[in-house]
Amino acid sequence: MGEMWKGLELPDRWLSPLSDTNTKKYIRFPDSQTFFCPSLDSFDGRVLALALEEEHTDFGRALVAALWFDRPVQMILKTGKEIMGMEACVYRCHIAGPLFTKKLLEIRSENPDHDMASAWELRFLKNIEVKDISEVKRPDRALEPEWHLDCMKYTKNG
């Protein structure tokens, strides 16, 4: 556990495609489950962060297992025909604090009705070659809604 805490710098070549809105972003777990991951970005060139909409889902469980048991994941970016891959460690789950708030506000700026259960911090480990992206899925839905209370608050406009 203690060996991983420093993480590695994200190579510069990742920064531009990460911020390109035309880039398609994916995360692949060791069991080959691959999910769309449009919220992935890096705000400081070191830390990668993604927003998890709901936790009690296949995507949420996969992230937890990767963090608990130190299982590296693959982050894949596709811009046009170019595919880039990296191995990353799932480093931290944020349920409050600056990174959490930043990701939440990003999500809500796109759609004020959207919410997010947690933000996940990943750290670059190494570049890898990825040949194909297949069987990509969207996360399933939680059995119960996972809303924050400020989404439920009473307003005079209903």
Partner: peptide
């Protein structure tokens, strides 16, 4: 407390 975005999900 509700003015802080996403800060609380249970009372």
């Amino acid at each position: 407390a509700l003015k802080e975005p996403g800060r609380f999900s249970e009372i």
